[in-house]
């Protein structure tokens, strides 16, 4: 096995252009588990976690190699809350936001925030740059639109990101847990509300009907809040697996969405 350690983005893009079959390694928290336990032996690895351009976090642009630890202590409230629920301190100091996107697990903890924020994913190859809305990038469970010769460069957030935002996740303990359901709610001063959920569909899901209903409510009554929870529960598409049942996931999605709504109300 050959491991390449490109020193900058140009070197990394040249390496992946030369061998689009190469495996990209960021923090290793997904890939090394496959190596250790499932016998994965990539012929060539391109290790990108130390590439300076990918570690940049400048305003609305978050580089792909920014770790969950940096997100956790960063200024974006719901993203920090989401990052804090990832794994353990050890996992958070290794795992990256670009890794969450590259893996595209339905349970990726930063993904509901990116969906609620209408984030864009920046991809680059030697031949150019593509910027995809999050829902064009993530195409299915562990599937995304990255081309083999591209690297995920980072995430671009919209210019206006409301300060009222919250994230929560349901699992059997606080640490080291993969979400049964997770949710991010962002509400603008004018009431416009966006709600996204993870682990309850093949990709992160925006609950558009719930958003439309609650956005029209300037001061949501008890009845409106209950209706919001009902609509969220109706819009998710959970399955039953070894972590939970579809019924529980649906119920819990409505409950946490309502709690988060109440946290972001004035």
């Amino acid at each position: 096995m050959e491991t390449l350690l490109p020193r900058d983005l140009d070197e990394a893009l040249a390496a992946i252009a030369a061998d689009p079959e190469a495996t990209v390694l960021a923090g290793g928290t997904d890939l090394m588990v496959q190596v250790n336990l499932q016998g994965l032996r990539p012929a060539r690895v391109i290790a990108i976690r130390r590439i300076p351009e990918l570690r940049e976090w400048v305003g609305r642009f978050i580089g792909a190699a920014v770790t969950h630890r940096r997100l956790e202590i960063g200024p974006i409230k719901a993203l920090a809350e989401a990052a804090r629920t990832v794994g353990s301190p050890q996992i958070r100091s290794a795992g990256t936001i670009g890794g969450n996107l590259g893996t595209s697990s339905p349970a990726g903890d930063t993904l509901p925030f990116l969906a609620a924020a209408d984030a864009e994913i920046v991809l680059r190859s030697r031949t150019g740059e593509r910027v995809l809305p999050w829902d064009q990038f993530i195409t299915g469970p562990k599937r995304n639109a990255r081309r083999p010769d591209e690297l995920i460069v980072g995430v671009r957030l919209p210019e206006h990101l409301p300060a009222r935002q919250a994230f929560a996740k349901v699992g059997v303990r606080n640490a080291m847990v993969i979400a049964i359901t997770s949710c991010c709610v962002i509400r603008d001063e004018d009431g416009t509300t966006r709600v996204a959920l993870g682990s309850v569909g093949p990709t992160p899901i925006r609950a558009r009907q719930a958003e439309e209903m609650i956005s029209a409510e300037t001061r949501p009554s008890e009845a409106a809040r209950a209706e919001f929870a009902r609509l969220v529960a109706a819009e998710v598409r959970p399955i039953t697996d070894h972590r939970s049942t579809a019924e529980y996931r649906r119920h819990a999605s409505g409950v946490i969405a309502r709690r988060l709504l109440e946290r972001v109300l004035p």
Binding site: T3, G28, M32, V33, N36, G87, Q90, I91, S93, M176
Partner: peptide, 25 residues
């Protein structure tokens, strides 16, 4: 698989599971 922490080391100031660090990296 990064669950148990018994392989914990500090690498460049960060707490990591050494089982999840590719040695070449």
């Amino acid at each position: 698989q990064g669950e148990c922490g018994s392989c914990t080391v500090i690498m460049d100031g960060e707490l990591v599971c050494s089982c999840l660090v590719l040695a070449a990296d």
